[in-house]
Design a protein around this nucleic acid. Sequence first.
RNA 1: GGGCGCGUAGCACAGCUGGAUAAUGCGUCGGCCUCCUAAGCCGAAGAUCGCGGGUUCGAAUCCUGCCGCGCCCGCCA
Length: 588
Amino acid sequence: MEILRPFVEQLVEPALAELGVVGDHWRNMIAPSREKSMGDLSLPCFAFAKQLGMAPDVVAEELQSRIPQTNEITDINSTSGYLNFKSSPSWLAEYVIAGNVRVGDAEGRNPTGSKSVLIEHTSANPNGPFHVGRARNAILGDTLVRLHRLHGNEVCAEYYVDDMGKQVAVLAWALANLSTEEVNVILTNREPVNPTWENKPDHDRVRWYQAAQVLRNDEAKKPDIEKAISAMVHASENGDNTVLESFQNAYQPVLDGMLETLARLRINFDQFTKESLFVTNGDVGEIMQKLASLEIHGVAENGAEYLDLGARGLKGKTEFFYRRGDGSSLYATRDIAYHIWKFTQCENLINILGEDHKLQSKQVSLTLNELGFKSPEVLFYSFIKLPEGKMSTRQGNVVFMDDLLEEAKSQASSVVREIRPDYSDEQVAQIGEAVGTSAVRFNIIKVSPDKGFTFRWEEALSFDSDSAPFIMYSHTRCCSIAEKCRAIDNLDDTVDYDYTEIPGSMYELLRVIACHNDLLARAVGQNRPNLFANQLLSLANAYNGFYRDCKVIQNGAINQTYFAVSQVASSLLKSGMEGLGIVPLSQM
RNA sequence: GGGCGCGUAGCACAGCUGGAUAAUGCGUCGGCCUCCUAAGCCGAAGAUCGCGGGUUCGAAUCCUGCCGCGCCCGCCA
């Protein structure tokens, strides 16, 4: 509870001085209490023990006896070497009700402008529909975009379109050379396209990509195909506009289909940047020239060029190749050009990348440093596996996000249908969609990015206590209360709040509210959305306790103090849910 | 073989800038709808924090060795 810190410091300073503690280092030692029942902030006294020649618990007691209660802090206790400070319930209630806790806006409509960030995420090859594995990137990235906005940062959400290179070339080649019949014959043994997605171009065109991959493994056909694809790749890398255009015609409908899926998850982008831009505008050539003049530059036998990053602390394989023997650039080279361009857009960069990109990202980062640029921040995430093993678009061993969302909607709808028989079909469908998509998002967000996990349908579709619907449900309770209050009373402008009687569960809610932005700051500062997901669960949980004990409406009359607290919780739940991409329904 | 990451109750997951009785959910067991939406609430049982050493007044947290899992080690993207 950072809002309490200045008051604690004010109290502690003279007491420490009296005991003979010198220096200022104690300020950093004040930390959130481990035991919530003990306090909001605590000062461990172990470090003073040696200096003063006293036992830690004695130090804590001595300090306690020298510190008076204040308006803000009414509970100071010492236990086992800790000095604990607990906020005054009345003061906290007044503080919260007065609107001192910043609510924020995840849509970014009112940035405080303290910091601007460009967040690049997803950037998936436009060769087929999203599966759950690829979608982890989009969900983490978009959540980070939302949380940064909620925190007040100005954010640009950016998608790097891989519009050149082998993957698109394969797709373009297949679309130009294979008929529908041929594709169907080649993929006879594969599962057919789910009829629901028959007309969705990402699901349709991926079959051409898959068919081409099968043919590329056919020894007889391989040589000719490889030759043709290779020629296209090289043309694209040399900036051949005809080829680049044919690539775009091949992938654009696929990309559009992919973005449609993301839009259903409320994931949108501010800007799309094509990889080919940096080849055609000359940036890549220029950078390769600069790299050649570096002292860690090296040349291989066939003329390929690299940097020896071992000299900059890279372990393992230290040669980083940025130019092929034939003079063309590599993906990483273009990525460096892209980063330098991104730095012209924004001074803070964040990338969301799969763990397989760790080495590459390190190489790009070190090279950027070599050229005088700073490193981007990177959020790495582990892969989502299936119980049967790794997911692979190429092999068709995947769970499509489109299928997951349909299933989520359908299951959520049947729950609604069951417990709210009075709702119309339209209402049920709308709630089912909101709950289903929110639950899918949340179940991915709540897991720490560096933990790999196995996708299981029942878990992805879990609507239990630590899930999006749990949070959504608390919010609907807030809304329901607010609506009833509006009906009772047109809300006079003169309201007297009672800060003398604060029930325990209301105090607990106030404490969670008071820490809300601490958690947001941490989640944003460390790029860890799961921390804020956890905070929202705590908030919903605390609200449920408050709801149980503190009746806002009793005997037809409104308790204005309770109502005010409920409204603050409601705002924070709503903005927080938007920060996670969860839909804040008012009814469910 | 080398590099990076992970390993916490039956399952899942938090805590890891060292600090108090290791938090939460699922599952299990037991309670709560004449009371603002029970997708809820309350209670109980359940953990040698992968294993062994080290640093420290104090280690789930830092260091080190081992074991297990994942990712990477292309003039691919």
